[in-house]
Design a protein around this nucleic acid. Structure first.
Length: 729
DNA sequence: GACCTGCTGCGGATTG
């Protein structure tokens, strides 16, 4: 064992030996000195299953092992399932070291929480929402029982960064630290995370005021091998004659996956259901036991857990057809291969998915199955360019050669979450002055891009809606509406969830469907990878009763789009410009496309060259004008919305802007005028967007702030103008 | 043309 190991407490060393470990991993050794020192924040950045959790807990437990009064370690996780996993893993350590471990989330028995409340000590494993409820309802107890807190550790920190829930978490950390103010030194924050695109910016996210230095511990680059390939499919226009691409994809999936252990990522719950039902049918036709199962967020927990256990046990061949639910940190072991059907949405998520495959001594395997429409006289430019295949190729190259992935977007205002935190602070203290709220949340806190004027406007608007009211002496207290919101069971989460129906078969809950899904009695549906007939729909208790049947289609689940990054579109352009998708390794080139994908690529390339797209960004076809910018969706959205403001009829397909009933000259002149207007801002553009209420409390945000927040998230006027000046004018 | 996450205290019935 190495030098750092010997600085751990003897009881911790004993536990390590009992695990049968002959050595600590590199990140575990590296983490010991800064965590034992206890005078700095630490970011541990490494892939899934690399021993990050132990890297924190070994030194942290070592230095707090004899603390018996109050909690010493606060562990925060985005998932209840992860808390349960960690609790199991810490159990043996807690037996040897006599450190209490308390899981604390909505599913944990009240009795267990009450017991820990009477005698707080050791480690608490909690969700942000449960911590919020403790701060609002029990802040006095929190102040006492966390008064000797030594560490705050956040698991899966990458899952929080840039999101409303992440902003909530940061605000909670600041509020907790403010509550424990008698402690002179701030409490070290430790973030455990998957590798991040902009790692050097993360210390500033973890703590906004830099009151503590931050060490970054990074896993050294692995030399693991990757096998990858892309298979193309042509979806025929005339379905009577030829087999649809979907069926050929399923046939190939069946032969690729049968008998092994695989994950199929299908990008939407609807497609996940279709594919898994089709593969199950094929098992039935071949008279073999079914080994294909769906996994997504609308399926009941019991079904998902059964599948996770089956994947982990490894004794039965199992393929999960899944959404991002199997991208996260839940323990399912490693699989033989990962298959992506349709183009991935981001390189970052593709990377997480790839990390799920590759057993000991075998390379990670990634396959992509991409279908494109057969061309006809009226095919769109996007189809002619074979844009989905091109995006898949670009993402593969960015992941494998350039080792690039999207950095988190850190510029959002999060007004909805700010409003939530204003209410939470007032609820926590009973009454508090406006300047105190501003200082704690904005000036010293994580909403530091919000100005005093914007904050005043928000408070004023909240007052008008009876969310809060000012009493004599200047204190703010909750208004009637504010009382109603904060007393609701639903208040502790900052993210929005739709109303849902429960789907039940033979008294067993299969999962949930959004209330606005169009489902009728007697209809046949696919759900949970099986085929059903809808027997009855009960709107009072929000249930749908189904019975087994044949046939049916999966229901439509709703969702918002996401933004493709500039770098991905630029890579797509570079590939066509250079004319080759191959990856140079040494003096040779790796080809990873099958023959269909290759001919699809050549069709797209041919159109690119014929249309002179290597030098033209704007083209005309009949009375349509197209802008092919090869830029990310923020810039595409900005240019499209600028044109909509000038009353053009505009639509966007995969980053290509289509303008109806016009000509090149007219559009170019308009764009020139737009560029000469230096006054136009992102918020001005947001004015013409109708549906801007996206986050949970957006209904209570004044229109002006809504425009600022939306503009910041979806537009970039400055860079769009730069691009237009360079390429169009 | 997407996905995911989480949440209380109390009253009343039932059981040992």
């Amino acid at each position: 064992m190495t030098e750092p190991f010997h600085s751990l407490d003897r009881r911790i060393q004993k536990w390590v030996f009992k695990q049968g470990w002959s050595n600590l991993r590199q990140i575990q050794n590296d983490a010991i000195p800064p965590i034992l020192a206890g005078n700095q924040d630490v970011i541990i950045s490494a892939s899934t299953a690399s021993g990050k959790t132990e890297a924190f807990f070994l030194p942290a437990c070592s230095s707090t092992i004899d603390e018996k009064d109050g909690y010493s370690i606060l562990y925060i996780s985005p998932l209840k399932a992860l808390i349960n996993d960690q609790y199991r893993r810490l159990e043996s350590l807690s037996v040897i070291t006599d450190i209490n471990v308390t899981p604390w989330h909505g599913d944990v028995a009240q009795s267990l929480k009450t017991k820990s409340k009477r005698n707080p000590s050791g480690i608490v494993l909690i969700t942000p929402e449960s911590l919020e409820s403790l701060l609002i309802r029990n802040s006095g107890w929190v102040q006492r029982s966390f008064s000797s807190l030594k560490y705050i550790v956040i698991d899966e920190f990458h899952a929080f960064i840039g999101t409303a829930r992440g902003q909530h978490l940061l605000s909670l950390l600041n509020r907790l630290e403010a509550l424990l103010q008698e402690i002179e030194e701030p409490i070290p924050r430790v973030a455990l995370s998957a590798t991040l695109g902009n790692l050097n910016e993360i210390p500033g996210v973890l703590r906004q005021n830099s009151r503590m230095p931050c060490s970054i511990i990074k896993e050294s680059k692995s030399n693991s091998q990757i096998r990858f390939g892309i298979q193309g499919y042509i979806d025929p226009v005339n379905n009577d004659q030829k087999i649809p691409a979907f069926h050929r994809i399923c046939t190939d999936l069946f032969s690729l996956c049968r008998g092994g252990s695989h994950l199929i990522f299908a990008n939407s719950r609807k497609r996940t259901e279709s594919i898994s039902a089709q593969l199950s049918d094929m098992c039935e036709q071949e008279v073999v036991p079914n080994e294909f199962f769906p996994h997504h967020g609308s399926l009941d927990k019991s079904l998902r857990e059964a599948l996770e256990a089956r994947l982990q046990k490894d004794n039965l061949p199992t393929t999960a057809v899944c959404t991002m639910t199997l991208e996260l940190g839940i323990d399912i072991g490693k699989v033989d291969s990962v298959i992506q059907v349709t183009a991935p949405h981001s390189v970052a998520s593709l990377r997480q998915r790839l990390g799920r495959s590759g057993r000991r001594n075998t390379p990670s395997t990634l396959r992509m199955l991409i279908s494109e429409k057969e061309l006809h006289a009226d095919s769109s430019i996007g189809d002619k360019l074979r844009i989905e295949l091109l995006q898949s190729i670009a993402m593969t190259r960015l992941l494998i050669i350039k080792k690039w992935y999207e950095p988190a977007d850190l510029g959002s205002f999060h007004f909805s979450t700010l409003l939530h935190q204003v209410l939470a602070l007032i609820a926590q203290w009973g009454g508090i002055r406006a300047d105190q709220i501003y200082n704690s949340l904005c000036k010293e806190g994580c909403f530091n891009n919000v100005t005093v004027e914007q904050f005043k406007e928000l408070l004023h608007h909240m007052g008008q809606q009876d969310l809060l009211t000012q009493i004599s002496g200047g204190q703010l207290v909750l208004g009637l509406k504010g009382e109603y919101l904060t007393n609701s069971y639903n208040f502790y989460t900052v993210f929005k969830t739709p109303q849902e129906f429960r789907v039940i078969a033979r008294d067993k809950t299969l999962g949930t469907l959004p209330v606005d899904t169009l489902i009728l009695e007697g209809q046949h549906i696919i759900f949970s990878g099986k085929r059903w007939r809808v027997e009855s729909i009960n709107t009072d208790n929000k249930t749908i009763i189904v019975s087994p049947s044949k046939g049916g289609d999966p229901p439509q689940f709703n969702g918002n789009g996401m933004l493709v990054h500039d770098t991905v579109r630029q890579e797509m352009f570079d590939i066509y410009k250079s004319g080759s998708y191959k990856i140079p390794i040494g003096s040779s080139e790796v080809d990873y496309l099958d023959s269909t994908a290759k001919s699809l690529f050549n069709e797209g390339l041919e159109f690119f060259q014929e249309a002179l797209l290597h030098e033209r960004r704007i083209i005309q076809h009949n009375d349509y004008v197209y802008i092919v910018s090869w830029m990310g969706d923020k810039i595409v959205n900005t240019i499209a919305t600028m044109l909509i403001k000038l009353n053009y009829k505009v639509s966007i397909f995969s980053g290509i802007i289509e303008i109806e009933k016009t000509n090149l000259e007219t559009v170019s002149n308009s764009l020139f005028e737009l560029c000469s207007n230096n006054q136009l801002t992102n918020s001005d553009l947001a004015l013409s967007v109708r549906e801007k209420r996206i986050e949970k409390y957006d209904d209570f945000i004044p229109e002006s702030l809504l425009n600022i927040g939306y503009g910041q998230n979806y537009f970039d006027v400055e860079r769009a103008r730069e691009w237009l000046e360079l390429h169009i004018i």
